[in-house]
Amino acid sequence: MGWSELRAVPNDYDEEIRAVDTQLIELLNHRKALAKGRRCFPPMVVLKEFEEKSGLKPPYLNWLFHSINGGFHRTRTDGPGELQGILQIMKTTVQEGYQYMITHAMQHEHGSIVHIEIRPQKIDNDSPDFHPRLQLEVTCPDVEYSVHRNGSRGGGGASSMSFLVEPPLPEQLDTVHFALIPFEEPMEFRRREIFLDQEVHFE
């Protein structure tokens, strides 16, 4: 089948949006040329200014700059490679009634899968469900890390998240800093859901 035989996906694209997209492409190319391959992320005070001027919340702004900096570009299609071992991290902090724990990293050949647990300090029958809109940031003076969401799950008053960090984390973490930043994709892809709600009998 040739490209001309493919059916176009219906959408509401028009000339006004095309003009905006043209400007976006020009600005992105200009920014890329200025960055010269560096990771250029605005500091908190500048993000606050952008929030006040644009009305966009920090999760969306962080998503925007993360994507501009190549945060969604993966150089590998074969995953992080073979499992090499487990790195104990055990960093814990408490903020506004929630405990955040970076427990460990599964050390693979080409990357580390960092695991995070989040739970409220007090759990009772009236405790609401919570949904983390966070992205892991890993910084080090000597290494530039790429971080991607690897998975998440929740239930029972707790939430777990994992992130793929490339290149792999070192065994000594003295110069490595971990942080969670607000993060949400404006048009996040949501997978189709299937509800299993039929009786199941085992013989």
Rank of each mutant, 00 (worst) to 15 (best):
D21C: 11
D174I: 14
E199W: 07
R38N: 09
Q107G: 03
G111V: 04
K122C: 09
I116H: 00
E185R: 02
I118M: 14
I86C: 06
I86G: 02
L136K: 00
L56Y: 14
Q95D: 12
T93C: 12
H201V: 15
D142W: 07
L47V: 08
V200P: 01
T22G: 08
G155P: 08
P182E: 03
P120A: 15
Y145K: 04
S67C: 08
L27G: 02
I123Q: 06
V9E: 00
G55N: 07
L24Q: 06
I102R: 08
S4T: 10
R74C: 09
S146P: 01
H66M: 02
G70M: 13
P59Q: 08
Y100F: 14
S127W: 04
I17G: 04
H115L: 05
H73A: 05
H110W: 11
E171D: 13
G79M: 09
S152H: 05
I89A: 12
C40D: 14
R153S: 13
F183L: 05
P186Q: 09
S127P: 00
P170W: 04
P128E: 05
M106H: 09
V138D: 00
N125G: 07
W3K: 14
L196F: 02
S67A: 06
H201D: 11
I25C: 04
V165Q: 10
N29W: 10
K57M: 07
I68M: 12
E5D: 15
T75S: 15
K48P: 01
V46T: 10
H201S: 12
G79V: 12
N29D: 13
E203Q: 12
I181N: 05
P120Y: 15
R18V: 02
F72C: 05
E193N: 06
G81W: 01
R76K: 05
H115F: 11
F183Y: 15
V147K: 06
L134D: 12
N150D: 12
L34A: 07
Q121K: 13
S67P: 00
Y13A: 09
E15F: 10
R192Y: 00
V46D: 14
L56M: 12
E15K: 14
G154F: 00
R39T: 15
G85F: 08
F178I: 03
H73Y: 09
M101A: 06
D12W: 11
D21M: 10
R192W: 00
M161A: 10
H201E: 12
E166C: 10
C40K: 08
V176K: 10
E188F: 01
R18Q: 14
V200Q: 05
V200F: 09
N69I: 03
F183V: 06
